[in-house]
Design a binder for these strands. Structure first.
Length: 510
RNA sequence: GCCCCGUUCGUCUAGCUGGCCUAGGACGCAAGAUUUUCAUUCUUGAAAUCAGGGGUUCGAAUCCCCUACGGGGUACCA
């Protein structure tokens, strides 16, 4: 029988989650849902020194915003808990002991200082120190020391770590779902610490134990884990869990768009685009890093952007709902090379999603921006404006730039337009137009448009002689949607007032 | 240094089992059309000698090897 798909996203709460992490989670989620499986959130907080308060809550809130739901884990519960590794602390020791007893691991009593000294000695000889099959023989561990010595050290509570004993001359194969067969020779690998002197497991031990206990079927994680994957594979073997060892898939990394290197949390706002899903305030320094949510990105757009950064369905479709993504997601189609984030394309995606969003929803958000500007206005009016200008916006916040003239009169008039369009007879013509508009009782788009156009025809003028300056007087600039839509929305009185003000202020332009 | 992974337009990428590739799409860029204007939209265009060099083959972006470059790892961090 096919094993049920169970995948996990396992961040460590060392700060805000960056978009690379979000993408990893997204791919896990898509894979799980595609196969009718479970998606769990496990918090890997084995390094107590790097714990950052608020990080866990941040992670949960971020996925909440994005609409990615966990089936199990921190914040949701489940049958395989606890899902926070610090809460699982007592259980790791027995697994470390199991390896100790079976000879797959050994005690090491070397202090950090001792190891540093050895490292320096190696460096001086231009050699690289590694705690491995070649060096463990003369370091202080249960392999080099006599049984009595080891017992004495343990009895006296001398701090120790447990290290994995990598076998010699073994070729370790990883069958990666994305990269295929990857092999490494065990002689080049070092005896990693599995269990720290503070009584906590390292990532490697905790990860394998938890994945096993939680019945994880597939491990989908960043490429930075590929080098330590042989250790993980060997651990499954050492525990005798080979039969249920998950399949591995190592994702390409998200790279910095400017220089080189992988995108990191520290890149923050340096790059001109958010690196985090939500805004984050560093609890220690108070530094604020911008987030996609606060920058006006729609969650659906962020998901779409991330999904296509390193994966594509092989068709020419580019806009996908989450459900569509689940439907067509194939892990084999994830690319092997790292991807750089493209800000322009990200904006384009958000533009697409903004157009898809109902006007009243956009209007609700715009209303709160207007409120901040002390503009108190009804939703229906704003909704109409949104319908008129949203196609020129990438973000809800762009609406103001495109529609402020609906709410406030022009304070100045674009000099370039005046120079180009405001002629000697313009003031006179606009007076006539004002008069004409004033005579219209049914002040709607069709009527005003018809009347003004007839006027232009009758006087044998061309559109350019009237329309541009009329727009200038209403908007203050030579831009914006259909002018008759604008005047019908702001109303007759306001329109006339603006025309008269413009005539007064620009005058004859002599 | 050593180990591992990668390398197609500026960017994201299609191309996987070699011939349909004079290398396709998208973003961005340029031009034109539409518009009273700006933007949107539409059309067209420029843009990769497929990192370089060797093979294999009638034929290679696609297979093999070497080199270069990029990335990752090399912690009692994850």
């Amino acid at each position: 029988m096919e094993r049920k798909v169970r995948v996990r996203f396992a961040p460590s709460p060392t700060g805000p989650l960056h978009i690379g992490g979000v993408r990893t989670a997204l791919y896990n989620y898509l894979f799980a849902k595609k196969h009718g499986g479970d998606f769990l959130l496990r918090i890997e907080d084995t390094d107590q020194t790097r714990f950052v308060p608020g990080a866990e809550e941040y992670i949960i809130e971020a996925f909440n915003w994005l609409g990615i739901k966990f089936d199990e884990g921190v914040g949701v519960g489940g049958d395989f808990g606890p899902y926070r590794q610090s809460d699982r602390k007592p259980m790791y020791k027995e697994y470390a002991e199991q390896l100790l007893n079976s000879g797959w691991a050994y005690y090491a009593f070397d202090t950090t200082e001792e190891l540093d000294t050895v490292r320096k000695e190696f460096e001086q000889e231009k050699k690289n120190f590694q705690y491995d099959c070649n060096t463990r023989g003369y370091l202080r561990n249960s392999l080099s020391l006599s049984k009595e010595e080891v017992d004495t050290l343990l009895r006296n509570n001398i701090p120790y770590v447990v290290r994995f004993k990598f076998p010699k001359d073994t070729e370790i194969h990883i069958n990666d779902l994305i990269r295929g067969d990857v092999k490494m020779n065990s002689n080049l690998l070092d005896d990693k610490v599995l269990y720290k002197s503070d009584g906590m497991p390292t990532y490697h031990l905790a990860n394998i134990v938890d994945d096993h206990l939680m019945n994880i079927s597939h491990v989908i994680r960043g490429e930075e884990w590929l080098p330590s994957c042989p250790l993980h594979v060997m651990l499954y073997k050492a525990f005798g869990w080979e039969e249920t060892m998950p399949e591995f898939a190592h994702l390409p990394l998200l790279l910095k768009p400017d220089g080189n290197g992988k995108l990191s949390k520290r890149d923050g706002d340096r790059l001109g685009f958010p690196v985090f899903p939500l805004q984050w305030t560093d609890p220690k320094t108070g530094d604020v890093s911008s987030g996609y949510r606060e920058s006006g990105y729609l969650p659906e757009a962020v998901i779409n952007i991330l999904a296509l950064l390193g994966w594509n369905p092989g068709t020419e479709q580019e806009i996908f709902t989450l459900d569509e993504l689940i439907d067509i997601f194939l892990i084999e189609r994830i690319s092997k090379s790292g991807a750089k984030f493209d800000l322009e394309k990200a904006k384009w995606f958000n533009h697409q999603y903004l157009q898809l969003m109902p006007n009243n929803k956009i209007a609700e958000q715009y209303l709160s921006i207007l409120k901040e500007k002390n503009i108190d206005i009804c939703l229906e009016y704003v909704e109409k404006i949104v319908g008129l200008v949203k196609e020129r916006c990438n973000f809800v916040a762009d609406l103001w730039e495109q529609s402020s003239f609906f709410f406030v009169k022009p304070e100045s008039y674009d000099e370039k337009v005046i120079k180009k369009r405001w002629k000697e007879d313009t003031a006179q013509r606009l007076n006539e137009i004002a008069e004409l508009l004033n005579s219209i009782d049914d002040f709607n788009v069709e009527k005003t448009e018809h009347e003004v156009h007839s006027f232009i025809e009758e006087k044998e003028l061309n559109m350019g002689q009237i329309m541009n300056c009329l727009r200038l007087s209403i908007v203050g600039e030579g831009k914006g949607p259909n002018l008759f839509e604008i005047i019908s929305l702001i109303g007759k009185e306001e329109s006339l007032e603006r025309i008269n003000t413009a005539i007064d202020r620009i005058g004859k332009n002599e």
